[in-house]
Design a protein around this nucleic acid. Structure first.
Length: 419
RNA sequence: GCGGCUCUGGUGAAGUGGUUAACACGUCGGAUUGUGGCUCCGAUAUGCGUGGGUUCGAUCCCCACGAGUCGCCCCA
């Protein structure tokens, strides 16, 4: 319980028994991204702090109070990435991925860092899988991204998923809506909670999503964004819905869905897994047509989402969809005496070189104890080597499931185990 | 960053202001002759999150800190 024996708060070891689950998810990710034509990219774990300031936006919670920022030995301000979109966009620009023309479709899996108070489904180091499509404003891409997220979660077997979509407008129409909201909430300021009173100036759209005020009556009459959308945004949103409907995916229009990061435009979406409780968002994302320009590229549209792997794991656990079995071995070698140990070790190496998984006990324990080990290891066969076997250059092969055993010439063991 | 609850061995846990901290699982060892899964026997916390304090004496009382958990904030 000291610093030495405790991982830092909000971090977790992923243990051998959990690796199967992680691999399962990661394999699904790679599979579906392959199907959708997205290529994997890996960006650095840390970036210049400035990148996140510019992309995520000052004034957001993530930037203001959740970043792991430090100065490196060269005096640079460095930040552990709190999300990966900014890095991917940066990599896109730096490596001129746009040079090939057309839409650039990327995905990533990696750990992100946010200094937040840990609770279920929220860690300081957590893992996200995400997808970014850069260079196309067609709403079909919005739909593709949403479908990818949806199909992915579905393919894991999750039920009780809820897809919510909204549009947050663009630099042309959002300010109009923003102002309308500010007027409306200022008129109703007495009804607002303290947090929301502060949000009027900072982020009036967030008020719509407030858990305290959200259910209050005056909220019903708050201005709807539909009334302010420019033609472009309106049409775009309609198209997205059309594509989704064509794909047979049910969605819920949620005018209160507001993303926390500054760079979002137009389409915003979120997939919830309701049984998760407070941290129910399992994937979220949206369009960010202004981001690339903001970071210094040519005006380029983009859209993406990120999904929290730990949250998905919790969801899978709840639905009992995980296997925790560690892969078992083909053979466990049991020896008696020091000659047999050498003989067994030799056999062990041979088997492994023949691609047969095997291990043995190195603690010089009794045969009985070794047999227990063998059984517990889940190995299919125990290969028993004692004085008799050495004398005859054979090995006793015991099938641990059926308890049948037979004596086999040592040089034929590998073939025998393969069949 | 704020609030509630919690913190006994590898695990699940019982327990008391005062000699040996139940029980179960697990682990290890054993039950004559080289062999597992059943059964039986034995061993297995010098310590009760950490650090202080109260007390003749604390794992059980108090305080602080830490971690976990739930909720808020925010988000994945």
């Amino acid at each position: 319980m000291t610093l030495l024996t405790n991982a830092p708060r909000g971090t977790k070891d992923i243990l051998p028994e959990q690796i199967q689950s992680w691999l399962y998810i990661e394999n699904k990710i790679r599979e579906i991204c392959q199907n959708y034509g997205y290529a994997e990219i890996r960006t650095p774990t840390f970036e210049h702090t400035e990148l996140f300031h510019r992309s995520i936006g000052e004034g957001t919670d993530v930037v203001d109070k959740e970043m792991y920022t430090f100065e490196d030995r060269g005096g640079r301000s460095i930040t552990l990435r709190p999300e990966n979109t900014a890095s991917v966009v940066r990599a896109y620009l730096q490596n001129k991925l746009y040079a090939d023309g057309g839409l650039v479709k990327l995905f990533y899996i990696g750990s992100m860092f946010r200094y937040d108070r840990p609770q279920a489904g929220r860690l300081r180091e957590f893992h996200q899988f995400g997808v970014e499509a850069l260079g196309e404003e067609n709403p079909a891409v919005d739909a593709e991204i949403i479908l990818l997220a949806w199909d992915f979660l579905k393919s894991l077997g999750l039920d009780d998923l809820n897809l919510k979509i909204n549009t947050v407008g663009c630099p042309k129409c959002r300010p109009v809506y923003r102002q309308k909201l500010q007027h409306y909430f200022t008129d109703n300021i007495d009804e607002l909670c303290d947090d929301c009173k502060r949000r009027i100036d900072k982020n009036p759209m967030r008020i719509l999503d407030c858990k305290v005020d959200g259910a209050k009556e005056f909220m019903e009459d708050a201005p709807k964004i539909e009334t302010c959308l420019c033609d472009d945004c309106r049409e775009h949103f309609a198209k997205v819905q059309e594509f989704l409907t064509a794909a047979g995916v049910k969605f819920e229009l949620d005018g209160r869905l507001v993303r926390g990061l500054d760079y979002y435009t137009k389409t915003a979406f979120e997939i919830q897994y309701l049984p998760l409780g407070a941290q129910s968002a399992v994937a979220g994302g949206g369009r960010y047509d202004g981001l690339i320009e903001e970071i210094g590229g040519n005006p380029t549209p983009g859209i993406g989402f990120a999904a929290g792997i730990e949250r998905i794991l919790i969801a899978l656990e709840k639905q009992n969809l995980l296997q925790t079995k560690i892969k078992s071995l083909d053979a466990f070698i049991v020896t008696s005496g020091s000659k047999a140990e050498v003989f067994g070790f030799n056999l062990l190496t041979k088997l492994r070189r023949e691609n047969i998984s095997a291990t043995m006990d190195f603690a010089k324990r009794s045969m009985k104890a070794q047999m227990k080990q063998a059984a517990k290891s889940g190995a299919k066969f125990a290969l028993i080597i004692g004085e008799d076997e050495i004398k005859n250059s054979t090995v006793t092969v015991k099938n641990l499931e059926t308890s049948e055993q037979e004596n086999i010439p040592a040089d034929k063991i590998a073939d025998s185990l393969k069949s």
